[in-house]
Amino acid sequence: MTGLSFRYGERVALDEVSLSAEAGRFTALLGPNGAGKSTLFSLLTRLLISRQGQIRIAGHDLERQPRAALAALGVVFQDATLDLDLTVAQNLRYFSRLHGLPPRQAEQRAEEELTRLGLWERRNEKVRALNGGHRRRVEIARALLHRPAVLILDEPTVGLDPPTRRLLVDHIHQLCATTGMAVLWATHLIDEVDPISDRVVILHRGRIRAAGDVPVVLAAAHSDSLADAFRHFTPESPPAQEAC
């Protein structure tokens, strides 16, 4: 995205934001609450439209070719978006149809993704019977059914216990490496970033404060820990959380 700005009335939510998520890499979008992450996700998913700036997804302009752009995008929203009274399989089938996957292919991919996340045996259970971590896994499996080129996740580990959080973070890192998918992962939890392989974008009060590989961001902040660098770039906000 380039030069993206957005206002809610008089309040500026995003100001000239430019960032990119590279194919095959995990880009962590770090920002305290109220930084503008959710607005950014609403713009990326075309739930909001900005007249200023441009968004391209897998080469498609979101404004001019919204269908092609959205077809290349996988999304895990911050709020749960599963139908609690439908089974895991029914939820996935609904999504596949929204994305126009032929039924046989949809079933095959549902099996692959659920197996990969250890949920294939629970496909006929109602989502209501699953715990928070399992529901999140179902949402991730669902977001991958149409093989998106770009996967965006808006604080997907909020409310999950540490082992589940680790499992999801590792799973997405692995997916990046094996499928070549570009991942944009919004979080305010520093320990979800792999300092060796990940890119980091720090967003604060609607503006990009730092972006690049972890060593680049550390150097810019004259710091040797990402938590310190985060504090440096986001003054007057609550400290970022590290491993719990």
């Binding site: 739930l47 269908r67 709020d79 749960a80 999504f95 994305h99």
Partner: peptide
């Protein structure tokens, strides 16, 4: 939130 899922389909 499930409205978001619907509205982001291509």
């Amino acid at each position: 939130g499930s409205m978001r899922l619907l509205l982001t389909s291509p």
